[in-house]
Design a protein around this nucleic acid. Sequence first.
DNA 1: TAGATTGTTAATCGATTAACAATC
DNA 2: TAGATTGTTAATCGATTAACAATC
Lengths: 230, 230
Amino acid sequence: MSTARPASLPTIKRLPSYLQIIENARDDGREFISGTVIADELELEPIQVRKDLAVTGIVGKPRVGFSVSELIEAISAFLHWNKVNRSILLGAGHLGTALMGYSEFRRHGLSIIAAFDPSPERHDLVINETRILPMDDLDDFIRREQPEIAILTVPSSVAQQTADQVIAAGVRSLWNFTNVKLKVPAGVVVQKEDLSSGYAVLSVKMGLAAHSAECSDDPAPLPGGRTSTI
Amino acid sequence: MSTARPASLPTIKRLPSYLQIIENARDDGREFISGTVIADELELEPIQVRKDLAVTGIVGKPRVGFSVSELIEAISAFLHWNKVNRSILLGAGHLGTALMGYSEFRRHGLSIIAAFDPSPERHDLVINETRILPMDDLDDFIRREQPEIAILTVPSSVAQQTADQVIAAGVRSLWNFTNVKLKVPAGVVVQKEDLSSGYAVLSVKMGLAAHSAECSDDPAPLPGGRTSTI
DNA sequence: TAGATTGTTAATCGATTAACAATC
DNA sequence: TAGATTGTTAATCGATTAACAATC
């Protein structure tokens, strides 16, 4: 394995899907896997998989493919998924609770060390090994435990003020599941998950599919073809 | 308003965020909004907003901007969000329950007419106006009610078989929240939401931020700069 | 009018894809 | 060896951005 290179955002987004395939291969006892096989499973082009994997610094063997264990190590290292990311979750509603239960994230270093919620009836409940604490404890907890990430699953109406509070207490990275575009000071990282985007893409795809079913037998790829699988 | 044009996937994904800003403007009683204002709020380039809005066929007024009501109509029509999409939800766990409660989707045409779950203790519960039914009712329900969309929030282990079942019963569009790459027949639309991609992007951004904080005062944009806000 | 904004046409930039030599 | 696969270099494609005339 040589050194990692800079990667484009589309590449970074595809790496987790590769990792999943490769971890499955490991669980099946396989020692090597080729870019071609990964591409087949994900319906991507082999050259794209090779290019993407190259950013991790992995070096393969012609004719054989890549070492499964080296590939897992390389992707995990590239994504920083081989270290623990201590995080807190704000808003223990259904979405927040769902995230607490995702073992996939936990396996890849995301450790949710506490959740915070204003509802007194939820306090001290332990869901998926994570205790729910009152909002009043938030500032002290952050200063004491120094979590790196705050996961925002609060209602949109309190998203900005919650972000302000955790940033003031020292959190430098936010994973924002609300539909609010947060205003944060320079140096604070925000990753926004936008389910509306997905709904929009689904809606447009459905419209195209309906149209092509009515009007012709042609398969109707999304306009913008090549990138339609993102 | 002239006719809608084909749009790229990045454009389609940005349209919902524009719509949100514009709906806020409407709620504030504003009649016109310019691309510049939208761009400012979302930290995008004005030219990108103008280009994106153009795909909906909207025509603006120089110096004034776009009619708020026309813009809402144009984006909604382009996304097919001004018609009702009858959908069913498979797997009434925390994530599924969270989706049932998202009024944003309901306002934009997504009507979840029923949820299905194997747990007997959840049957006939009504959550956010949606009744939870046993899996045994699924086939009959689909044939009777003809929902257009199936939302998959089931465990990964049963994702493929659940998809097979709803497709066999007549559903043509899947919104897939599992981490399984579904195999579906031609003509079936699948939109996959991938939270792991978001976690990967967050992790890499954090790594870059940490590195730049240690090594220099430079702001450290993601490699691949221009598209780093996706 | 002056000036902000739209919308078009052209330029740039970067991601994807192709071609192919190297390799085991 | 033969042939599949890697990895590099070049070409293509499309999305973003720039420039600017038109417009109210």
